[in-house]
Design a protein around this nucleic acid. Structure first.
Lengths: 105, 105
DNA sequence: GGTTTAATTAAGTCTTGACTTACCAATGGG
DNA sequence: CCCATTGGTAAGTCAAGACTTAATTAAACC
């Protein structure tokens, strides 16, 4: 029924398009806040706030390098989301097949 | 870079917890609006509005049966989301491995 | 130690949207 | 036909949150 404890937070964190854009960019490789903001149509503080949300949802991790902070996606979180939809797919598919069998023979 | 045309709408639709709860219940099998609302802490109009959003995001489909309307998940949408995270996982994993190799040998 | 670079935090604005109650539309059965 | 059931629509409220600019912390380099 519930697919994981933090799944709710993860989905809420990925709802806003800008935030998912950040997440997708980080999937390709670690980036600093500045580099991230340079490729996005929002200010750096906005990016910072999004990163805070992603981090508290367990989707990204932070590493400090001098005055920079390097963010990267947490592979475990991605795996969890992938598994969520794998299970979801199984459930939906079997429900669909059930509906075909018992449906309107 | 972009993983699908409607992915943005799908993620925004699944952000709100109530809406994802609806989606999860529908994955287990088709339900009417009333049955759906009976198991949720919100009013029937609220459920109706969520279903409208889910439907316009292509996540659920509607079928009429008398005065009832039966909603069910669209398996194609689930497959698309699953594929999204499959690809995401590949990308994040290879980026992670790259970072291990070149990182701090 | 001062300055520059990098980023988070504070404060405030303004839209969005999740929810409510009340009303309307449509189907089906007596 | 009328009424009951079911669900969608309208209208309005209210909080959340996605942004902005301005101020603050923190590290590195001279």
């Amino acid at each position: 029924m519930t697919y994981g404890t933090n799944i709710d937070a993860r989905f809420e964190a990925l709802g806003p398009p800008t935030r998912r854009a950040i997440f997708e960019r980080l999937a390709a490789g670690p980036l600093s806040v500045g580099d991230l903001a340079a490729g996005l149509p929002v200010s750096r503080p906005a990016v910072s706030q999004h990163l805070k949300a992603l981090k508290s949802a367990g989707l990204v991790v932070e590493r400090r390098a001098g005055t920079s902070r390097i963010y990267s996606v947490d592979p475990k979180a991605v795996a969890e989301l992938r598994d969520y939809f794998d299970r979801f797919w199984d459930i939906a598919l079997s429900a669909y097949q059930r509906s075909l069998e018992g449906g309107d023979a």
